[in-house]
């Protein structure tokens, strides 16, 4: 995954000024560890938290179909943001946590947000057995590693409880999990589990709905992933009917956009495509929360014969969190058909 909602936690606090770039990500890392291209990811340890890095997240999205035949999408995200590169007991911990949950239907979009301090046990992530939690929201392993998970969250007017079973291997993004984010060399450690089968129950104001579908987990940590001239990003995770998957993003930059993509075969083997191989173009802009946000896109990846339209299931999937952004399920038509998730920031 890309440079996502890194500084949300910092922005939650009053008066935190953003000096440059989107969400202030262009600042230098001071005292924090820096992603190392030579580092090789090791599991289960890297499923857990990396407090020596400034930012980190566990980001799960799922496209679902209800027994009522309707399309749904859910998001479950846990962010970690460190004020200093260490962990401590009690309120003195510099680790801050924030979680977002969303449930999208074709005509509704439910959002909830939670925040917590590290060090007191209100939020955290342990690697083995795997558990990521904040308050009563949990992503918990029911088998070694992250092959099988149970997932839950609830807000004032919605909740969900889902089980996830991985159908393929973990995918290391970029170069063996070292994902470059700008031509200046900004980067992060990044791996995904893009092939979960999902079953479970969504609870909406109208009552519970049984659902099944596809889930995608992104794990990423870094200390300085955005360049100072980058203003926001458009990020796609797409699952096609033939079993292929694609992760692609565009970082909008005053010095020229930066795109990258990973093509995942049905067997789970991943191929990182070079910068610029993917082209993305907004087709339709919707008025969302008082601003124009592209909700239909054209994606072309000539190397894989891909030319598709990506359309939001619900254009109004606006995350009214303390740091607002757009995130919701999409449907794919064109050379390939399928479903996926779209995230857009900086609009």
């Amino acid at each position: 995954m890309n440079a996502r909602l890194l500084a949300l936690l910092l922005l939650c606090l009053p008066g935190f000024a953003t000096a440059q770039g989107f969400a202030g990500l262009g600042t230098d890392a001071q005292g924090f560890a820096v992603p190392d291209p030579a580092h090789r990811l090791s599991f289960p340890a890297d499923h857990g938290a990396h407090p020596e890095f400034r930012i980190e997240w566990w980001y799960l999205t799922a496209t679902l179909t209800g027994e009522d035949g309707r399309d749904y999408g859910i998001q479950w995200t846990l962010f970690r943001s460190a004020l200093a590169p260490y962990e401590a007991e009690g309120w003195a911990s510099p680790q801050l946590w924030m979680a977002h949950a969303a449930l999208t239907t074709p005509d509704r979009h439910f959002v909830a947000e939670r925040r917590a301090r590290g060090g007191i046990g209100q939020a955290g992530v342990s690697a083995e057995p795997f558990l990521a939690y904040l308050d009563d929201w949990e992503m918990r392993a029911t088998a070694p590693g992250i092959v099988a998970l149970s997932l839950s969250a609830r807000g004032q007017d919605f909740s969900y409880a889902l089980t996830l079973e991985a159908q393929g291997p973990l995918v290391l993004q970029g170069d063996q999990g070292y994902s470059v984010k700008s031509r200046d060399g900004h980067a992060s450690h990044y791996y995904s589990q893009p092939a979960y089968d999902v079953t479970g129950t969504l609870t909406l104001p109208d009552g519970p709905v049984r659902v099944t579908g596809q889930g995608w987990l992104d794990r990423e940590w870094s200390s300085q992933p955005l360049s100072g001239t980058q203003s926001g990003w458009d990020w796609f995770s797409l699952s096609f009917e033939g079993g292929e998957k694609m992760m692609g993003f565009r970082l909008r930059d005053t010095a020229g956009d930066f795109t990258a993509a990973t093509w995942i075969s049905p067997d789970g083997s991943a191929e990182a495509l070079p910068e610029g191989a993917l082209s993305v173009e907004p087709l339709t802009t919707s008025q969302v929360a008082g601003r124009g946000v592209p909700t239909r896109w054209r994606l072309d990846l000539p190397a894989k014969g891909l030319s598709v339209d990506v359309t939001a299931l619900n254009p109004q999937a606006w995350m009214t969190t303390s740091f607002p952004y757009w995130e919701g399920p999409v449907t794919i038509t064109g050379s390939h058909a399928g479903k996926g998730y779209l995230e857009m920031t900086g609009y």
Binding site: L10, L13, P14, G15, F16, A17, L83, A84, A92, P94, L96, R117
Partner: peptide, 11 residues
């Protein structure tokens, strides 16, 4: 305004 750096307040 410059005094509200979260790290200063929380640490």
């Amino acid at each position: 305004t410059d005094a509200t750096d979260p790290a200063a307040i929380l640490l």
